[in-house]
């Protein structure tokens, strides 16, 4: 893989004519620059594909004001890894079997990729994937979060998502009663 992600200090060094470039430069909300393969960006992100096709890519760094540098680094990292990986035929065919959702299970490298992320980084990446229209990355990150949520109590979920319990005691009791048959304690 010759296309590495750009380092933050890589500004102003590329004066190659746009047509010759096989990478695009993306600029995070905090002004850092990242380079990513044009082909991978166009294939994995509907938003970037649109920008590339529409010529709205800026050589000096296309502004992505909604995405912080950490999340953008992960996006670029994902694109590069994806371009590098060979989709496993076994995984693809097994996912077509009956009774499974259309979602294909994350591949090993995708699993590792999201597993190493911190909690905050994971949620930032979900937002970034959503913003950039990266369907597969959105799938993989949402899948990871849903796995983290499985089996957790409402209390634990509130803590993870930093949610205030806005129910009254009575309301909560009512819901629990409604679900009494299903709501046994683990």
């Amino acid at each position: 893989m010759e296309v590495d992600k750009g380092k933050g200090e890589a500004e102003e060094t590329r004066k190659v004519a746009e047509a010759d470039r096989d990478t695009v430069t993306l600029k995070s909300s905090d002004g850092k620059l990242f380079e990513v393969s044009k082909e991978a960006a166009a294939r994995l992100s509907t938003v970037l594909a649109g920008m590339i096709a529409g010529g709205s890519i800026d050589d000096n760094g296309t502004d992505l004001k909604q995405i912080g540098s950490e999340a953008l680094e992960n996006v670029v990292d994902y694109c590069n890894k994806h371009a590098n990986s060979i989709p496993s035929a076994a995984l693809i065919s097994s996912s077509i079997s009956f009774n499974t959702a259309p979602f294909k299970e994350p591949e090993e490298w995708e699993r590792k990729f999201v597993d190493r992320l911190s909690h905050d980084a994971l949620f930032d990446l979900v937002e970034a994937a959503n913003f950039l229209g990266m369907e597969r990355l959105l799938d993989v990150t949402c899948h990871k979060i849903s796995e983290m949520m499985k089996g957790k109590s409402p209390d634990q979920i509130r803590e993870v998502f930093n949610i205030k319990n806005d129910y009254t005691k009575e309301e909560l009791e009512e819901i629990r009663q409604e679900l009494a048959w299903a709501f046994y304690d683990d």
């Binding site: 949402c142 949520m149 109590s153 819901i175 629990r176 679900l179 709501f183």
Partner: peptide, 19 residues
């Protein structure tokens, strides 16, 4: 998007998280 991926039993329980 995330909740579509949790099992039904968890989903049931998550109704208690917040309004």
């Amino acid at each position: 998007e995330i909740l579509t991926r949790v099992p039904y039993r968890s989903l049931c329980r998550f109704r208690c998280v917040s309004t």
